[in-house]
Design a protein around this nucleic acid. Structure first.
Length: 531
DNA sequence: CAGTGAGCGAGCTTCCGCTTGACTT
């Protein structure tokens, strides 16, 4: 019989840790929180210092019963819940529910490696009751807000079902963005492009250094250009670089999977959960950019072997967000020698590959570029034409993770003073755009920036506002729009009015009618809460 | 006499954050 009992939150984690610790240890999991306030009433004594009542949650009765049994036969118990506010509270709830002494050993680790775990075991502490109280305050206030305001809404606003610290600001963002969009009036301007040619017949694409406000100005410039002399004013070359991004955390994984693979936030999390359960990746609900030293070394080995020493650059990314709790690592493959996994469906393979590439790239050297800027003077005008070129001189991390198209944009080798002639000219009317509607992923990004919600709730918060019928996800067709086009053809200025399809929206979030009413009601009456 | 509709009363809804897995669309 094992002498030591270790309790963690996640069953998958329990399995891994048990392997590291050997036969003297049995590792069990709480499967998240085990106790909460009652479902049906407030469960807070408002007359008595806001004392909360807790009970074992219906779906955790079995778990708690099993843990009690395990505690009975154990000589020593270690509470190894996550090292964050919620994890500390879970440790305390375990103390209470399992009737453990207050000085029961509490251990923490931020990475699932043998070294980290044995080190934790040899350096136990006790439960931090200040942190537990912080969590209780958070929990009590969330319930007070939700359970006091929601019933008011049932009476006052038909269709309104709920309000809360998180969901109401989330809904507000969508409502306010939609109002901004409907108030936006498109201002038009004219962007000028041209192709110029030198005496050797080499062509260069250029843009004008300013846009025109009106059609008249644009026509005047086009006419001036007919009799202008063009010549190279300057050629400037300078090196530049691009650096890889930090490894994934929950929010950035959701954004990239949305942009690159078209996954919904929920879909991404479901697939990531499966990868985690199979042991292919580290924990997927995290706000930490940190990679374990073991992973950093493994990446170094792979990069040097696959690409060469010059492609390696060990990087340690710091979390900027002051509210981050950093109980886990960044999201990374557990085995960096496996660029892909097999025997899984296509979407799972794609998400894994994305995680693999992002992780490896984060430990690689900068990409180096040579940028060239050529300015071309127009003899009878103040405006300049500008050509920009970019050559990749060293790919670095771009070898595995392409954020931008790494295609070279080559320019002909022009020299200062060289004369050029106009080969083509087009000035196209364009319209200022309103801010885009949120997608699930961009809403998560915004929410995280504002410090609302936690990685474990990003997916549920975007679905809660949809379940409550405050927000809908829709794909909308584009509409035809006419624009002015001014060109030069055979020495004369030509005008036309072509059409284009614009405003195509895929999986964007729109507020419902209820959301407008509810939002205005909350802003008016509970401004301190929805702010 | 059967069916309809007004009127009344009872019962329900709700928060956020931590975990999965069972279940439905």
């Amino acid at each position: 019989m094992a002498k030591n009992l270790v309790i963690v939150e996640s069953p998958a984690k329990a399995k891994t840790i048990e392997k590291f610790l050997g036969k003297d240890y049995v590792v069990k999991s709480s499967i998240g929180h085990i106790r909460d306030m009652p479902k049906k009433d407030m469960g807070i004594d408002l007359e008595n210092n806001f004392e909360p009542t807790y009970e074992v949650t219906a779906d955790k009765k079995k778990v708690v019963a099993e843990l009690r049994k395990a505690v009975k036969v154990a000589e020593k118990v270690y509470l190894a819940t996550d090292e964050d506010r919620e994890g500390e509270a879970i440790a305390w709830h375990l103390l209470e529910a399992l009737k453990l002494p207050r000085d029961t050993s509490r251990i923490v680790f931020h990475e699932i490696t043998k070294g980290a775990i044995t080190n934790a075991i040899t350096n136990p502490r006790t439960v931090d009751f200040n942190l537990v109280d912080a969590q209780q305050a958070r929990r009590v206030i969330d319930r007070l807000v939700g359970f006091e305001i929601s019933p008011v809404l049932w009476r006052k606003i038909s269709g309104a079902r709920s309000a809360g610290r998180v969901q109401s600001p989330v809904m507000r963002l969508v409502v306010e963005r939609e109002r901004e969009i409907s108030q936006h009036s498109a201002v038009s301007s004219y962007k000028v492009k041209a192709e110029l040619v030198n005496d050797n017949g080499e062509l260069v694409e250029v843009k004008l250094n300013k846009d025109f406000d009106s059609k008249d100005q644009t026509l005047a410039f086009a006419t001036q250009l007919l009799s202008a002399d063009l010549s190279v004013l300057s050629v400037e070359k300078k090196p530049s670089k691009r650096s890889p991004k930090a490894p994934f955390i929950t929010s950035t994984l959701q954004q990239e999977a949305s942009q690159k693979l078209g996954f919904s936030v929920k879909q991404t999390m479901t697939i990531a959960q499966n990868l985690y359960r199979e042991g292919a990746i580290t924990y997927m609900r995290t706000d930490s950019f940190t990679l374990s030293e073991t992973a950093i070394e493994a990446a170094e080995k792979v990069i040097k072997q696959e690409f060469g020493v010059e492609y390696h650059n060990a990087r340690r990314f710091k979390t900027k967000d002051a509210g981050a709790q950093e109980a886990h690592e960044a999201i990374r493959p557990t085995d960096l020698t496996k660029p892909s996994i097999y025997g899984v469906d296509e979407q799972t393979a794609k998400l894994y590959s994305l995680i693999y590439k992002r992780t490896l790239a984060s430990q690689m050297s900068d990409a180096k570029l040579q940028k060239t800027q050529i300015k071309i003077a127009v003899s009878n005008a103040d405006e300049l034409f500008v050509a920009m070129g970019e050559i990749l001189t060293f790919p670095g991390f771009l070898k595995v993770y392409n954020y931008l198209s790494a295609e070279d944009k080559l320019l002909p080798d022009l020299t200062q003073g060289e004369p050029l002639t106009l080969a083509s000219f087009s000035a196209r009317e364009s319209f200022s755009r309103a801010k885009p509607r949120y997608t699930e992923a961009s809403l998560v990004k915004k929410i995280e920036e504002m410090g609302i919600g936690r990685p474990s709730t990003f997916a549920t918060m975007v679905s809660t506002v949809q379940d409550r019928n405050y927000v809908t996800k829709e794909t909308r067709e584009g509409f035809e729009r006419e624009y002015e086009l001014i060109e030069i053809s055979e020495g004369t200025v030509v005008e036309s009015k072509p059409n284009e399809t614009t405003g195509v929206e895929k999986n964007k979030l729109f507020p419902t009618n209820v959301a407008y009413l509810l939002n205005d009601f909350l802003v008016k009456n509970f401004s301190n809460i929805i702010d």
